[in-house]
């Protein structure tokens, strides 16, 4: 049977601790559900380390553990908590190799979810990390992608921010790019938006629009694949970067890099520029299938008419 992303995370974490004498740090790890079933059910003696509620200090404690080269995993239950957790990681762990030639490898599992959970718990926040040096950012949504992230972490000695999404945990399927030479528009989705992008593409194609998909797994470093570049240049209207974070961060930056490379137009979609509340009417959700369809039609129909 195919494995879910959830199972892969749990297995990988368990093996990582056992094989590398490593540690998993986090808050309330053994609480009901073991972080969506992704954390192996181990004891502190076996390497599952409960931290206190001191989130800023916790980032520092994990950075210190990173210096020991035990390659700790740090679980941040809601990506919004990075506002506190990220400060010492970004300013120390990420700079340690460059300034002092002392690597500080940490595998940070930042977990996103959304829907009626208020202003700080929802969505992805990888943009917090994005502008800083010394960090890799990856957003795996499939079992194989998760293994790519982990293997890269083990092969190198970088701080890695893994922008997870609970919406992917039950996924067993790989998500492929869909590209050819005569597309109207290409979607460049990140994180959970990749699933909606697939659905939007199917609907749009039923109506005769030609939509491509280029899945963004690596956010930093962001490498524009040759086949993406070629397909964009040959497309009629360029592309749209889709994100589960506010657009004034990763999405706009990647769009800028794509514009520079291809000289084509790019738009961005992500969270709206407002705070989220605790109800369906006040949520701030990533672009839905319907919103993506609407945006694609706007771009294609408006420009198509010119």
């Amino acid at each position: 049977m195919e494995k879910t992303v959830r199972e892969i995370i749990k297995e990988t974490s368990r093996d990582h601790i056992k094989k590398n004498n490593s540690l998993i740090f986090g808050q309330c790890l053994s609480a009901v559900g073991w972080v969506g079933g992704t954390v192996p059910e181990l004891t502190e003696k076996e390497g599952l380390i409960e931290l206190s509620m001191a989130d800023v200090a916790n980032g520092g404690i994990v950075a210190g553990a990173g210096l020991s080269n035990r390659r700790p995993i740090y679980v941040i239950r809601y990506q919004g908590f990075n506002w506190f957790n990220a400060s010492i990681i970004l300013n120390y762990a990420c700079k340690s190799k460059e300034i002092w030639n002392v690597p500080c490898p940490i595998f940070i599992r930042g977990i996103a979810m959304e829907g009626s959970i208020g202003p700080v718990a929802g969505s992805s926040q990888h943009s917090i990390y994005f502008k800083m040096p010394g960090i890799k950012i990856i957003s795996p949504m499939t079992p194989n992608e998760y293994l790519i992230a982990y293997k890269d972490f083990m092969k190198n000695d970088d701080v890695m921010y893994v922008s997870e999404h609970r919406g992917s945990y039950s996924n067993t399927k790989e998500l492929n790019d869909h590209l050819d030479d005569n597309l109207d528009l290409i979607l460049f989705p990140i994180s959970i938006t990749r699933f909606e992008a697939q659905k939007a593409k199917i609907e749009l194609e039923k109506e005769g629009y030609k939509i491509g998909i280029a899945n963004i797994l690596w956010i930093k470093p962001f490498l524009i694949k040759k086949e993406w570049e070629k397909a964009v240049i040959k497309s009629k209207f360029g592309g749209v970067v889709l994100d589960d974070d506010y657009t004034d961060g990763v999405a706009s930056n990647l769009a800028y890099q794509l514009i520079k490379r291809t000289k084509k137009n790019f738009e961005v979609m992500g969270l709206k520029d407002r705070s989220a509340g605790f109800s369906k009417t006040t949520d701030n959700l990533p672009p839905s299938k319907e919103e993506i369809i609407k945006k694609c039609k706007e771009i294609i129909d408006k420009k198509g008419k010119l």
């Binding site: 380390i49 404690i61 950075a63 210190g64 990173g66 210096l67 020991s68 120390y92």
Partner: peptide
């Protein structure tokens, strides 16, 4: 906290 983490 970094010293605490390294010590731990």
């Amino acid at each position: 906290p970094i010293g605490v983490g390294a010590c731990f």
